[in-house]
Amino acid sequence: MNGGALAGIRVVDLSRVLAGPYCAQLLGDHGAQVTKLEPVTGDLTRSWGPSRGDGVSAYYAGLNRNKEHLTADLASPEGRDLALRLLRDADVLVENFKPGTMERWGLGTEELLERFPRLVYCRISAFDGAGPMAGLPGYDAVIQAYTGIMDLNGEPDGPPLRVPMPVADLTTGLLAFAGVLLALHERARSGRGQCVDLSLEDGAMSLLHPAAANYFMTGEPPRRLGSAHPNIAPCDTFHSPAGELYVAAGSDRQFAVLVGFLGAPELARDPRFGTNADRLAHRHELNAALARLVAGLDPGVDLARALVTEGVPATLIRPLADVLDAPDAAERGMVTGLDGLRLLGVPIRLSRTPGSVRTPPRPLGADQAAVGAAST
């Protein structure tokens, strides 16, 4: 089996919880040798939610495969020495400590880049260093609230809601992964490493499309729309005899096909609904008409397949268990198993050097003896 696109790249993962470990896991999925150096008390996520009993919780398992697992107290001389020994041969460092912490330990960006000039130093913080919250800690839910994501999420007459997935952390982890690859690519030309600096705040703000674009153009603050779309109609959920149906007819042609399928082709000729702008202006009347038509559909019809076959983006809303247990999820490699754990797979598919899930998330310090001895 090939070693992956990043075979030969060595990563020291000092990060905890989510964005940093996710970035390091993505590097490991594609062949990098990742050594995770945890506090002696363990990554906080080892205690989050269901656990299999050896310190590997479900939350930890989803972010820490394809890594070697060591512990160190970086505030101690011994822990600092271990980190420096690992960094001697490392290409990438990932850390997400509170700003100033690494400097206090003598492991700050300037010190390490001077000592290891080829190192790509990936630094992730909660808030951007130039903002009023600079240097303060923050979790994903706090970032969602602070950056307006929660304000946009929810029903029009309901309160703001957190997006249930940690989108700020995951997005920042993906951006960190991309930033590390950019820095490694540039290093191949210059021979020099650099700092890759990210914050959850900026990562979350990068998700504010099209709300930000709409606000910049109109000056009108966005409103919560539930499952509807601010720029497209119809784009919403409708109750059908077979379940909740989500329809996103983004073009005039798709709308004409949709209402033809529903047995009401005259709606495409209705001046209230002739263009997307018309449909947005009369969104409530349109949704009421579509709701009546969808509610009367034959419950035996595979609505999602029938509509998509006709060119209308639509699907029944699937429960998560159905998504994860579907045979095609395993066939595509998006659900996989290792060491008795079910894990999500590798979404980036390379034809010659595909990523892979090779080693499971392990108990705290499981590789201490082997890796610690090798680094001396």
Results as ranks from 00 to 15, higher is better:
Trp48Phe: 15
Asp81Val: 10
Phe97Ala: 00
Arg46Tyr: 01
Ala58Ile: 02
Cys23Trp: 03
Gly28His: 10
Ala61His: 07
Thr41Arg: 14
His69Phe: 14
Lys36Glu: 08
Thr45Leu: 03
Ala32Thr: 10
Arg46Glu: 03
Asp73His: 04
Ala83Asp: 04
Thr45Trp: 12
Glu78Ile: 07
Arg52Asp: 01
Ser15Thr: 12
Arg46Ile: 03
Arg16Val: 14
Asp29His: 14
Ser57Val: 00
His30Cys: 08
Cys23Leu: 11
Ser47Lys: 15
Asn64Val: 02
Ser57Ile: 00
Asn66Trp: 07
Glu95Thr: 12
Ala24Tyr: 05
Ala90Lys: 08
Glu95Ala: 06
Lys98Gly: 05
Tyr60Phe: 15
Thr71Val: 14
Asp89Lys: 14
Lys67Gly: 02
Val94Ala: 07
Glu95Gln: 15
Val40Cys: 14
Gln33Cys: 13
Pro50Glu: 13
Gly28Ala: 11
Gly49Gln: 08
Tyr60Lys: 00
Val94Thr: 07
Leu70Val: 06
Asp43Phe: 10
Val92Glu: 00
Pro99Arg: 12
Leu74Cys: 05
Val12Glu: 09
Leu86Lys: 04
Ala75Trp: 02
Val92Met: 01
Tyr60Met: 01
Val94Met: 08
Tyr60Leu: 03
Tyr59Leu: 00
Leu74Ala: 06
Lys67Met: 01
Glu68Cys: 15
Ser51Pro: 11
Thr45Tyr: 13
Arg88Asp: 13
Pro77Trp: 03
Leu37Asn: 10
Gly62Asn: 10
Pro99Asp: 12
Ala58Cys: 13
Leu37Phe: 10
Asn96Val: 03
Asp13Asn: 14
Leu14Ser: 01
Trp48Arg: 15
Val17Ile: 15
Leu27Pro: 12
Ala75Cys: 08
Leu82Asp: 06
Leu26His: 13
Gly8Ser: 08
Gly55Lys: 03
Gly100Lys: 07
Asn66Arg: 11
Leu26Ile: 13
Thr45Lys: 11
Pro39Phe: 10
His30Gln: 11
Asp91Asn: 09
Leu14Thr: 10
Asp13Phe: 02
